[in-house]
């Protein structure tokens, strides 16, 4: 170890960020669960729903593709991302990174970027598979909009996930609460959205994270004209991101004990 001493300046940010991004990407590619959660599970749903009742109506297909996309985002962000982060906090990976000259935001941003990129790629694959098995023909503009909505969705669920890991120290508790939260959000967004649980629930459902995202996905896939409901959904998503990201960053607990 004959390196010249670098005691005059802190290391360049760009090199640090690149190194983190590379490492986080390798970790992501090596972790089978995150890939399964973000792409494989939604594809299974897409394929499974083609059996049995034939989905001839366009609205039905779009809804199912929207659901598959949302599910992929929900599981990989709310469970995959949070559990990996909590685990790294538990075993001291985050601590080791934090004693380097890399600022905390850089360590977190690198992880978020890799997670969002994974979700993007997974979403594109899910849409393509969904379009094929459910016979949707989509134009380039629709694909771009799907990507845009997927980024928004990833941001919403990552922000909620960030708040979850930020506030709760125990990995087991995060795992349990994350699962419950996921089921609750899905039930509220999907079942509540059908109206069978009553009008009030339907109203709440449309504004819930899953409900709002499903509205946007199915409107994009159906090529519906932009509606007031879409504006509402968009604003709701932005609000969720702002509120939960603030909580998750402001009160993030770096230590597990």
């Amino acid at each position: 170890m004959t390196n010249a001493r670098v005691d005059t300046a802190r290391p360049p940010m760009g090199l640090g960020m690149r190194s983190l991004l590379r490492a986080d990407t390798i970790v992501m590619l090596n972790s089978k669960t995150s890939l399964v959660l973000s792409a494989l599970l939604p594809i299974v749903i897409l394929v499974a729903t083609t059996f049995g009742k034939g989905q001839s109506r366009l609205g039905g297909s779009a809804l199912i593709v929207g659901l598959a996309l949302t599910l992929g985002l929900l599981t990989s962000c709310l469970l995959g991302f949070t559990l990996a982060l909590a685990h790294d906090r538990d075993i001291g990976v985050l601590q080791r990174l934090r004693v380097t000259p890399a600022p905390n935001w850089m360590i977190m941003t690198s992880r978020l970027i890799v997670q969002v990129a994974t979700n993007l790629i997974a979403s594109v694959i899910v849409v393509i598979v969904g379009a094929i098995v459910h016979g949707l023909t989509l134009n380039v503009g629709q694909y771009l909009l799907v990507i845009a909505v997927a980024i928004l969705g990833a941001a919403v669920f990552l922000a909620i996930g960030q708040a979850l890991v930020g506030l709760i120290r125990s990995t087991n508790a995060i795992s349990a609460i994350g699962r419950l939260l996921m089921i609750a959000l899905l039930l509220l967004g999907v079942l509540g959205g059908t109206g069978i649980l009553g009008d009030t629930i339907k109203e709440i459902s449309d504004w819930s994270p899953v409900g709002a995202l499903m509205t946007l996905f199915s409107d994009v896939l159906n090529q519906s004209a932009w509606s007031g409901q879409d504006t509402g959904s968009l604003l709701a998503c932005v609000a969720y991101v702002a509120v939960f990201a603030f909580i998750g960053i402001r009160w993030f607990r770096w230590e597990s004990r």
């Binding site: 802190r10 360049p12 640090g16 190194s19 983190l20």
Partner: peptide
């Protein structure tokens, strides 16, 4: 990080310290 090899760990931390 459990998924990184020794080589990758050395590159990561080298980068973080500007080496």
């Amino acid at each position: 990080q459990a998924e990184l090899t020794i080589q990758q760990i050395a590159r990561l931390y080298g980068g973080l310290y500007g080496v």
